[in-house]
Simulated assay, not measured.
Amino acid sequence: MSKWALMLVAVILPSNILLYHSSVQLYLDIHIGKEVVFGSLLDLVVVLPALMYAAFRLSKKQLAGFVVFGLVLARSILPEAHFAQYTILLYAGLAVEVIVVM
């Protein structure tokens, strides 16, 4: 199972990164809407930590750390115009992480 999970992580991360490059958007004629941004957030905040949990059997604290890492990664991958409406998720995730760690 861990090999499959890591292979899926190796597909999810580059695909989300490439999705927001303007040259890829022009070449594939992709329009980035709210649904695409929400899908990327879902990939990075839910699917990625779940795959890492399946690959490495993480503790709850480590899993919460991967959720926050997914939020920070989404913040760095997504353009500001697309991430602006989801900024509250970043702060809420950080607050939950602080509560879980303490």
Rank of each mutant, 00 (worst) to 15 (best):
I88C: 03
Y27C: 03
Y86I: 09
L71E: 11
M52P: 01
L19N: 02
V47T: 07
W4F: 13
L48E: 01
G39N: 12
S22E: 13
K61C: 04
V36I: 14
W4C: 06
L90T: 01
V37C: 08
F83H: 10
L90G: 06
I77R: 05
L78E: 06
Q85P: 05
L78W: 01
V36S: 11
Y20R: 04
F38G: 04
V24F: 13
D29F: 14
H31G: 05
K34G: 15
K61H: 03
L8P: 00
I17C: 05
V37E: 06
V72E: 03
L73F: 11
S40N: 15
E97Y: 13
Q62K: 14
Q62W: 14
L51A: 04
F66I: 01
E97N: 08
M1C: 08
A74W: 01
Y86F: 15
M1W: 09
L28K: 14
A55L: 09
L44V: 02
D43A: 15
S23F: 15
Y20Q: 10
K3F: 12
L94F: 15
V46S: 06
L26A: 14
V96E: 01
V36Q: 12
W4V: 07
A55W: 13
S40D: 10
V100W: 04
I32T: 10
K61P: 00
V11A: 14
K60F: 14
A84Q: 12
V9N: 10
Y86K: 07
A74R: 00
A92G: 09
V36F: 00
A92C: 11
A92N: 06
H82G: 00
I32M: 08
V68C: 08
D29N: 14
M52V: 02
Q62S: 13
S40V: 13
L90A: 04
K61F: 05
L42N: 09
A84P: 00
H31E: 12
L26V: 11
V9A: 06
V36N: 06
L26I: 11
H82R: 02
V46K: 03
H21S: 08
H82P: 00
L41F: 05
G65R: 09
